[in-house]
């Protein structure tokens, strides 16, 4: 068997293992879903009237439309925290040492985690999206092509964040540390255009909020689903995703190839 098909086969085996874990122990993933869904309901039904007045009028449904793209990306951030935790847990397991002494494709352990995490992220996004639709989110003006592009962006964003999350999991000695280390991935959306426009923030924070990875991705998703102006945000979002994915890949692989502790 050549190297590539060996890599693909072993990675598929590792993916099956990770999906089996997720299916058997869904509580971690479901807990992490709780945050974005709760925030969605909180912002729409509790703060909704005030917030929609703040972003320039309109009723509560206008604010639902505003907030959903950000929350979908936040869902990804929240799901990959689970990835950090499960990678850290996994690395503490003796079975990883066994994998390292077997004649398998070395990277397959990590690739299995990454693909599993992207699959879980997409499933979570679909669930949160369903809740959003149930409370009145509509993106009926988007063309089929725009839907595909939006889906592609979500997958790309999930891949980028996952590679970073895997790296964070690998440097964490245990699950608690992994959860703490990955916390910025949940908090970053709060400092983006997810809940309020960047222009409504204090001047000194605006450059950070404007150019951090979440804002361009949110603005692009908004543009694709709701027809707002995308501008430079499309390229910025793709550049951030590719950059984070490559950096996370190099970091995680180097980390995993080191002698274990």
């Amino acid at each position: 068997m050549n190297t590539l098909s060996l890599a693909a086969r072993d990675s598929a085996t590792m993916l099956r293992r990770n999906l089996l874990h997720a299916r058997r122990y869904p509580s971690l993933t479901l807990n992490l879903l709780f945050t974005p869904i709760m925030l969605l309901l909180l912002f729409v039904f509790i703060f909704g009237d005030t917030m929609s007045a703040g972003i320039g009028g309109g009723d509560r449904s206008a604010y639902i439309a505003y907030i959903v793209p950000g929350l979908l990306l936040m869902t990804i951030g929240s799901t990959v925290v689970g990835t950090s935790v499960s990678v850290a847990n996994d690395m503490a397991e003796g079975i990883i040492a066994r994998f390292r002494t077997m004649a398998i494709h070395r990277g397959s352990v990590i690739v299995g985690h990454v693909v599993g995490s992207v699959v879980q992220s997409v499933a979570s996004v679909v669930l949160v999206g369903a809740v959003a639709v149930a409370i009145g989110f509509r993106a009926t003006d988007a063309t089929l092509l725009e839907w595909f592009a939006a889906f592609g962006l979500l997958v790309l964003f999930a891949t980028a964040l996952t590679w970073i999350a895997v790296g964070l999991g690998l440097i964490s000695p245990n699950a608690e540390a992994a959860s703490n280390n990955a916390m910025p991935l949940i908090l970053m959306p709060l400092l983006s255009s997810a809940f309020v426009p960047v222009e409504a923030m204090p001047g000194w924070i605006q450059p950070i909020a404007q150019y951090q990875p979440f804002t361009p991705a949110i603005e692009t998703l908004r543009g694709l689903l709701l027809g707002s102006e995308i501008g430079d945000n499309g390229w910025l979002a793709v550049a951030w995703c590719v950059g984070l994915a490559v950096a996370g890949y190099i970091w995680s692989t180097a980390r995993f190839n080191r002698d274990p502790r």
Partner: peptide, 22 residues
């Protein structure tokens, strides 16, 4: 220290090894 995957069953552990040995 035991090198088994505690989250899955004994049989699944064995099948995992079989898959990894192709």
């Amino acid at each position: 220290f035991s090198a088994v995957d505690g989250l899955i069953t004994g049989e699944e552990n064995m099948l995992l090894m079989a898959d990894l040995h192709h």
